[in-house]
Nucleic acid binder design. Structure first.
Lengths: 255, 255
DNA sequence: TAAGCTCGGTATATGGGGTACACAATTTGG
DNA sequence: CCAAATTGTGTACCCCATATACCGAGCTTA
C-alpha cells in the first residue's frame, strides 16, 4: 500500500560515506568528481578562509564545476562538513610505546593540538552527528590505548578519555578564538593583548569582582609571548594535575 | 586633513553595549525598542528553535517591528549574539561559602551545567570576541573565588580556572550534541542510543581498533539512563581526579 | 514660536547562500 | 541498438544579512 516505488537507495549517511560504503554504479557517464576531491577542495578553502569562506559555491568553483554538481556526491552542506571534519582530522601518528602512560597521553594531546592548529576551523564546526568517523575513532582508540591497563576499570578509562578529549578541544578553541579576534580586524596581535588587559582593568575596577581585580592589578593578565599560546600553560597545568590525580587514584586502589 | 566630518559616534562595541555604555540622546522620537527587549526576544527564539532559528527577521517579527529597526540598537547579527550570550549566562548564584573549596568548585560546575541545559545554543555559539561581558566575568570571578587561597599561586589559579571552564563547556557541548541529534530526526532517544552502540560495533569490528573493540564487546557503550546525561559521569570522574591532583600538588608544596 | 538638528522606524534593494527540479548528455546492460 | 541509470547543468525559489534613502517625531535653540 505504501507507495515505495523503486526504493531509490536512500541517501547514504555521513558515517556510511566516511567508511566508504558507496555503491559503485556502472551505467551513466564517468564521474568527473569524487568525494575525495571535493573534500580536499573544501578543506583547502576552510584552511585558507575559515568556515565562513566555505560554501557550496566556493568549493564548486574551485573545482571548476557547477554548484549543483556537488549534490551528486554529498547530500548537502552539513554532510560535506561532516566529511571534511573527519578527513581533516587524519590519523594520529602511531604511539611511541614508551611504557610511560603519562608521556603517551601528553604526546596524544600535543598531536591533537597540532591538528587543531593546522585546521582551526575544526574547532568551529558544530555538528549534530555522533563521533563515528574512522579518524575520529582512531584518535579515540589511540588515547584509550594509552590509558588502558594502568589500573582503571573500563568505565573509568572511558571517562578519562572523554574528559581529556573535551578539555583539549575547548582549550584549543578558546586559544584559537583569542588569536582569531585581532587578526581579522587588522590590528597587530601585541596591541590587542594590551587592549584586552586594559579593558579588563577598566571593567573590573568598576564592578564587584574582588579576586579578579587583585589578579588584574598584580599583572596576571599581562600578555605573554604574544603568539597564540597564552592558554597552553593552562592546558599543561590542568593536564598534569589531572594525571596526578589519576595516579593517586589507581595507586590508592591498587593497594 | 582627514575628512572626519562629524565624528559620528562610532558604533559601540559589544563590550560597551553589555556594560551599559550607551549614550542616551535626548532628541528624536522615543525609542519603541531597547537592547533589553531585543535580547529577550532573541533568547526566547534561540531557546525554542535553536541558533538556526535565530535571524534578524525572526527577532524583529516577534517584536512586530521591521527587520531593519534592530540595526538601530545593534550593529549586526554578530553583536546581537554577543549580547544574548552574556545575557543568557546570567549571574552565578552566590557561593554557599562552605569552607570546602572542592564542594565550591563542584557547585560552580553544576551551576554552569544548569545554564547550558537551559540554553543549549550557548554551546553552539562561536564568537570572536574575548570574554569580557559582565556575566561572563562574574562566573569567572566566582570560580576564581573558590580556588584562590588554597595554596596555588596566582598563575596556577588562573590555569586551573581556565582548564575547568573549558572542560565543563566541551563536556556539556558533547552531551548536548549527542542529545540533539536524535531529537530532530524524530526518532526516540532510546532507539538512537541503541543504533549508536550497534554502529560502533559494526565499524569497530571491521577496523583495527583493538581497545575500542574490547570495550564495545564488553558493553561499555551500552546506553545509560537514556536521557542526555550519559556524559556527566565522565565530568564527575575527571573533575574529581583533577581536584585530587590539585590537592596533592598544594600539600606537597606546602610542606 | 519657528527653524533645524537628531534620531527611531520604514521601505526598498542588493548580493549571497542552500537547494529543489527538470533537462541534456553519456555510458552500459539487456 | 534501445532503454535505463547516472552525471553535470541551468534555472528558479526562498531565506538571510545588510546598505541606503527616506519620513516624521521630538528636542534645542534662536
Amino acid at each position: 500500500m505504501t507507495p515505495e516505488r523503486k526504493a531509490k537507495a536512500p541517501q547514504p549517511t555521513s558515517v556510511e560515506l566516511l567508511w566508504g560504503a558507496r555503491n559503485k554504479p556502472t551505467r551513466g557517464p564517468r564521474p568527473g568528481l569524487s568525494l575525495e576531491v571535493i573534500a580536499k577542495a573544501a578543506i583547502e578553502i576552510a584552511d585558507e578562509e575559515g568556515l565562513e569562506g566555505l560554501s557550496m559555491q566556493s568549493v564548486a568553483s574551485r573545482l571548476a564545476y557547477t554548484t549543483m554538481s556537488l549534490y551528486r556526491y554529498v547530500s548537502g552542506k552539513e554532510q560535506l562538513v561532516d566529511v571534511i571534519y573527519d578527513t581533516a582530522l587524519g590519523l594520529p601518528r602511531p604511539a611511541p610505546e614508551s611504557g610511560d602512560w603519562r608521556a603517551g597521553v601528553h604526546d596524544w594531546v600535543w598531536g591533537m593540538l597540532g591538528v587543531y592548529k593546522a585546521h582551526p576551523w575544526l574547532l568551529r564546526v558544530t555538528t549534530n552527528s555522533p563521533p563515528l568517523g574512522p579518524n575520529q575513532l582512531a584518535w579515540f582508540e589511540a588515547l584509550l590505548h594509552h590509558v588502558s591497563g594502568i589500573g582503571l576499570d573500563e568505565e573509568e578509562v572511558l571517562h578519562l578519555v572523554i574528559f581529556v578529549t573535551c578539555a583539549v578541544r575547548d582549550l584549543a578553541r578558546t586559544s584559537s578564538e583569542l588569536a582569531q579576534g585581532p587578526q581579522q580586524s587588522g590590528v597587530p596581535a601585541e596591541e590587542m593583548a594590551q587592549d584586552y588587559a586594559r579593558a579588563m582593568q577598566d571593567l573590573v575596577g568598576e564592578a564587584h569582582l574582588p579576586v579578579l581585580s587583585k589578579m588584574v592589578a598584580a599583572g596576571t593578565f599581562e600578555p605573554g609571548d604574544g603568539e597564540y599560546n597564552d592558554i597552553m600553560p593552562s592546558l599543561e597545568f590542568g593536564l598534569q594535575r589531572l594525571l596526578d590525580g589519576v595516579d593517586g587514584y589507581v595507586s590508592a586502589r591498587g593497594r
